[in-house]
Amino acid sequence: MRPERFLLKVDSLSKSYGEGCPRCSGPGATLDRNHCRRCGTVYAVRGVSFELYPGEVLGIVGESGSGKSTVLNCLYYDTVASSGSVYLGSYREGAEDALAVSAQAKRAIRNELLGKVYQDPVEGLRMKFSAVANVAEKMICAGSRNVGAMEERARRLLGLVNIPLGRMGEAPERFSGGMRQRVQIAKALSNNPPLIFLDEVTTGLDLSVQAKVLDLIMDIQRESGVGMLLVSHDLAVVRMLATRTMVMLDGRMVEQGLTDQILEDPQHPYTQELVHSLL
């Protein structure tokens, strides 16, 4: 065990869509991958547990539909988890289940202690509002009412993610995919949170653009020491950024460990397949 306190501790997190039936929820339950053929219930995340430490980048890999985004959505309160507990080192010293607090406390946690880059920028940004306003939104949500201070910080963050000064007043609907992701990163960092979530941050971008965005994330991580939970279906992305990695399959975590170890000596057959496809 490490001596320092975790940034994030997730305990048996589950999320299902549907009511379940005796076939899928009783003892000896049988599922078709992550769903029940009889009642149609989807078990998107099943009993996932892990910890993330200050300054660490933890990767989550897994194929499409394995439940990666759902984990992040539960942690960022975009969706309500079905069961499980979440502890944040920055909230009540990690002593209180952050899934069991009031709506107001959740709002404060989300605005002040977390940030998120969405898989689809349309979800994470207001496409018709200026980039500056997009970055300022989280500051407004956290209670700032000073336009000058918010503008200054938003511009500084947008500069940090290489949005040209002359385009900061423009709306993301006029930006390229790579620029949109960079605005999302600036927004996630706006309240200087100790932990941010990144969901497929480079998916859909050209290879050269991908490399630039990944470099940017590495730089930010090195300079700010922000903790990152990084989701990708691409093991190459995770290998570049994450010190530790967990592998998801059909809603379950099938393997977790140091990224190098997983790459060199994958244990689970699915991980072996994944690693071989990378080589």
Partner: peptide, 17 residues
């Protein structure tokens, strides 16, 4: 939930524009 940040955001964006 008395969450009026959106109303302030609209005013903030007007100032930007």
């Amino acid at each position: 939930e008395r969450d009026y940040s959106g109303a302030y955001l609209v005013l903030f964006e007007e100032i930007q524009r």
